[in-house]
Simulated scan of single mutants.
Amino acid sequence: MASAQNAVDSQLLRELSLFEGLDRLRLEKVAALFTLVDIPVDTELLREGGQADYFYVLLEGRVALSVSIPGRAHYETTVSTLSKGQLVGWSALLPDGVWQASAHTLKPCRLLRVTATAVRDLCEADHEIGYRIMKNALAAVGQRLAGSRLQFLDIFGSRDD
């Protein structure tokens, strides 16, 4: 349960696409799991390949997602930049999830943070919550993948050989 100073109001969740379609009572159940955190600029939130045991929803600021380039030691490239309302660390929604990218703050950020186990347990206990969160998360991940695909086509698909 969140402390009083970091408690999350269910009204805040109503404005976020990840929780779209949830009624007031279910939003209150979900809100009780989250805490508000403020993270300074240039802070690593996630490390690619690490155990995905929590995730964030970005309320303010910007976060860069980057992936390692195989065969290039210590080289990462930014694949996406996230802003208000976006999910950071979606892999945590999967049992035994592993982060698929690293994430670090580009600006000071205010985020909602939750442990993966808490969300997955609630989704299992209330299938309507589970359906809505997974559906909305999948839509967000799909949009992110489509954007990455366009980015890679722009980089690699426009060569005149």
Rank of each mutant, 00 (worst) to 15 (best):
Q5I: 13
T117Q: 13
V79F: 04
A52H: 06
D126I: 05
I129Y: 09
L106V: 01
A4R: 12
L12P: 06
T43F: 06
S10T: 00
T78I: 09
T81Y: 10
Y54C: 07
S17A: 14
A31M: 12
I133E: 06
Q143A: 15
G147K: 06
L145A: 07
R72D: 09
G130F: 03
A125C: 08
S91V: 02
G130A: 07
L94N: 04
I39P: 04
E76Q: 15
H127W: 12
R24W: 01
L36A: 04
R132V: 09
L16Q: 03
A103Y: 01
V79L: 01
C123Y: 06
D161F: 09
S3V: 15
S91Q: 04
V8A: 00
S83K: 08
V30I: 11
A139G: 06
V8T: 01
C123Q: 13
F19D: 02
T78F: 08
R14K: 10
L36G: 11
D96C: 05
D160N: 14
L93F: 01
L36V: 12
T35H: 12
R24N: 03
D154Y: 06
D23M: 10
G157R: 06
C109L: 09
A52M: 11
T105C: 01
A92F: 00
K107M: 14
S148F: 10
N6W: 04
Q143M: 13
K135L: 10
Y131L: 04
D9C: 12
W90K: 00
Q86K: 02
L122S: 05
L153P: 05
Q100D: 05
T43N: 04
M134R: 11
V141A: 11
R24K: 11
S3Y: 13
R62P: 01
H127T: 14
T35P: 03
I129E: 01
S148H: 13
L13V: 02
L87F: 10
V98N: 10
Y56L: 01
N6F: 14
R132T: 03
F19Q: 01
P108L: 00
L87S: 02
A31W: 02
E44P: 09
L82F: 06
L33W: 12
W99Y: 15
L150K: 15
V57G: 10
V37I: 15
A92K: 00
A125D: 13
R110E: 10
S158C: 09
